[in-house]
Amino acid sequence: MPLELDKQDRQQAIESLQRYFAENMDEPIGNVTAGALLNFFLEEVGPCLYNQGVADAQARLQQRLEDLSFEVHEDVFAYWRKFDANKPRNKPKK
């Protein structure tokens, strides 16, 4: 699945790359070159980040599923226990 940015996010990413080059590199980078570099990052590195995000979401959902069984667990055959708990216990005969 190719990673794509919407038009506004893409433009902001290109501007961010241009600023980075202007402040940290010997030469500035043009709009077309920044767009090509962004495409490279999206294709080459983007899937790693995407897959990590999916793995993080799966781990979080798995944890929530484990919590769910604890949070909503109901004891079975508990009707008589509420009566038995209130009964006085007979002392054992000697």
Rank of each mutant, 00 (worst) to 15 (best):
M1T: 05
P2S: 10
L3F: 03
E4T: 08
E4Y: 06
L5N: 04
D6R: 07
K7M: 05
D9G: 03
R10N: 04
A13L: 14
A13G: 04
A13M: 11
I14A: 03
I14F: 00
E15L: 06
Y20I: 15
A22I: 00
A22S: 15
N24R: 12
N24L: 02
D26K: 15
N31P: 00
A34Q: 01
G35R: 04
G35E: 02
A36R: 14
L38M: 01
F40D: 14
F40V: 13
F40A: 13
L42T: 02
L42H: 07
E43D: 08
G46S: 06
P47A: 07
P47Y: 05
P47I: 04
C48E: 06
Y50M: 11
Y50K: 15
V54I: 12
V54T: 09
D56I: 08
A57E: 10
Q58A: 13
R60M: 07
R60Q: 10
L61T: 12
Q62C: 07
L65W: 10
D67E: 13
D67L: 06
D67P: 00
S69H: 09
F70W: 06
F70M: 15
F70E: 10
V72I: 09
D75G: 15
D75P: 13
V76M: 01
F77T: 12
Y79P: 03
W80I: 11
R81G: 09
D84I: 05
D84G: 09
D84S: 11
D84A: 10
N86A: 12
K87T: 04
P88R: 03
N90A: 15
K93N: 04
K93H: 00
K94F: 00
K94Y: 05
